[in-house]
Amino acid sequence: MTVVIFIRHGQSTSNVSKILSHDTNSYPLTEEGIMQAKEAGKELSKIKVEKIYTSPVLRAYQTALIIGESLGIFPIVDERLRERYLGELNNTTFDPSDHWKLKMLKKQLEVKGLESWEDMTRRMRNFIESVVNKNNNVIVAVSHSDPIRAIVAYFLKLDDISGWGIRIPNASFTILKCNNANSCEILSIGSPVITTQVLSKLNVNVKIS
Rank of each mutant, 00 (worst) to 15 (best):
R149N: 08
L176H: 06
H9E: 04
Y85D: 04
G33P: 04
E115V: 12
S14A: 15
Q11C: 01
I47D: 12
E43R: 10
E115S: 12
K103Q: 10
T121F: 03
E32D: 03
Q197A: 13
P28R: 02
Y154R: 00
N136I: 04
G33R: 01
S191M: 08
N170Q: 13
T63S: 11
S45G: 11
R125T: 06
N91T: 07
V77Y: 01
M120T: 14
Q36L: 08
K107V: 10
I189N: 02
I151W: 03
V57M: 12
A150C: 06
R167F: 08
I76R: 12
T121R: 14
L114Y: 07
G163P: 10
R8P: 04
K177I: 09
K38P: 00
D119L: 10
D95E: 14
N170T: 13
V140S: 08
N170P: 02
K201A: 11
I186D: 01
G163N: 09
E79M: 11
L29V: 05
A60W: 06
I7A: 06
N133V: 03
I52G: 10
A37I: 03
K106S: 04
A64H: 07
I151Q: 06
K38R: 13
I19Q: 01
L102P: 04
V49N: 13
N179I: 15
L65R: 13
S162Q: 15
T195A: 07
S26C: 01
F94V: 08
Y53V: 11
E39M: 03
P56N: 07
A141I: 08
I186Y: 02
R8M: 02
L102I: 14
L158C: 04
T196L: 10
D119C: 00
Y61W: 10
L20Q: 05
T2P: 09
S162L: 14
Q36A: 05
I128R: 00
G163R: 07
D146L: 02
F6N: 07
D146H: 08
D159P: 10
S130G: 07
A150F: 03
N170S: 13
L156I: 13
L81S: 14
E129N: 12
N205Y: 11
I175H: 06
G163W: 07
S55R: 04
H99G: 00
Y154H: 15
P192F: 04
T121I: 12
Q11Y: 02
K201Q: 15
E118D: 10
C178D: 09
T24G: 02
E69D: 15
A141E: 03
V3D: 06
N135M: 01
I5H: 07
V16Y: 05
D160G: 03
E50P: 01
E31F: 06
W117C: 02
I208S: 14
G165T: 05
L20S: 02
R84K: 11
N135S: 04
K207Y: 11
L199K: 11
Q108M: 08
E79C: 00
E110N: 11
L44F: 11
S162V: 00
I166P: 11
I19G: 00
N136L: 12
Q11D: 00
A181V: 12
